[in-house]
Amino acid sequence: MSALLRTEGLSKAFTLHLQGGTRIPVLGGVDLAVHPGECIALWGPSGAGKSTLMRCLYGNYGAGAGRILLRHGGAEIDLATADPRSIIAARRETIGYVSQFLRVIPRVATRDIVAEPMIARGVPKAEAIARATALLHRLNLPERLHGLPPATFSGGEQQRVNLARGFAPGYPVLLLDEPTASLDAANRAIVIAMINEAKHAGAAIVGIFHDAEVREAVADRLFDVLPQQDAA
C-alpha cells in the first residue's frame, strides 16, 4: 500500500543571520514513510530535531533539500515546494497537526475553535458544533467551559482543546507533537483510545511521544532521529 506521507532525502538547516550567519544543520537525508493505519513514533534525544521534522512535515518549516510528499486529493504534492494555497488546501483536507501548545485566538469560544476546521471542510455548522461538543465531553472538558475562549484555561485543558480540534475533522494524516504532555492518566487513556480509533479508520500518524506508556500503546514502530552533529 502506498504511503500517505513520505520524505525523500529531507534536510533542514537554520541560518541565523542575526548571529553572523551561523548555520545550524538539524535534519540530514531523512527518508520516512507512513502508511494508512500506521503510527510512527519519532525517537531520539532531546534537541535531535524531532519537532523540526514534525514542523517540516506540516509545511510549517521549509525544507533545505529533499521532498515531503503528501497524498492529497488523489495525487502527491511536495510540501517543500508547493505554493502556499496548495498547502492551505492540504491542511484543510488532508493533514492535521496537534502541537503541545494551543495558539489562542482571542474571544473565540472553545467549541467554535474545535468546530472551525470541520466547517472549513464543509461540515454543516450545527453538525460541526455537535461533534465538537461531543469530543470535548469525551476529553472531560466540562460543558461550562465550551462557551469560553480557552485563553485562561490550564495547560491540560488547552491541550485537550487542541486535541479535539485536531481529531474532530478526521484527517487522513495526523501529526501529534507530545499530545499527552500535560494530561493526567485518565485523559491519557482517552487520547490513546482516540489515536487507535484513528488508526483503525485508516489514518497515517506521526508522533512524538515522550510518555513510554502512550508510545507503547499506539506506535507500530520507531523512527530514529539523530542529532546532525553526531551523525556527521
Binding site: H17, R55, N60, G62, P84, I88
Partner: peptide, 21 residues
C-alpha cells in the same frame, strides 16, 4: 513571502528574522 506561519516561524531573509525576533 509565503505561507504566513512558515515565513514567521522559519524566516529566511535576514530582515524577516530581525522583524520576527
Amino acid at each position: 513571502q509565503g505561507l504566513t506561519d512558515r515565513v514567521l516561524d522559519d524566516p529566511q531573509h535576514p530582515y524577516t528574522q530581525l522583524l520576527v525576533s
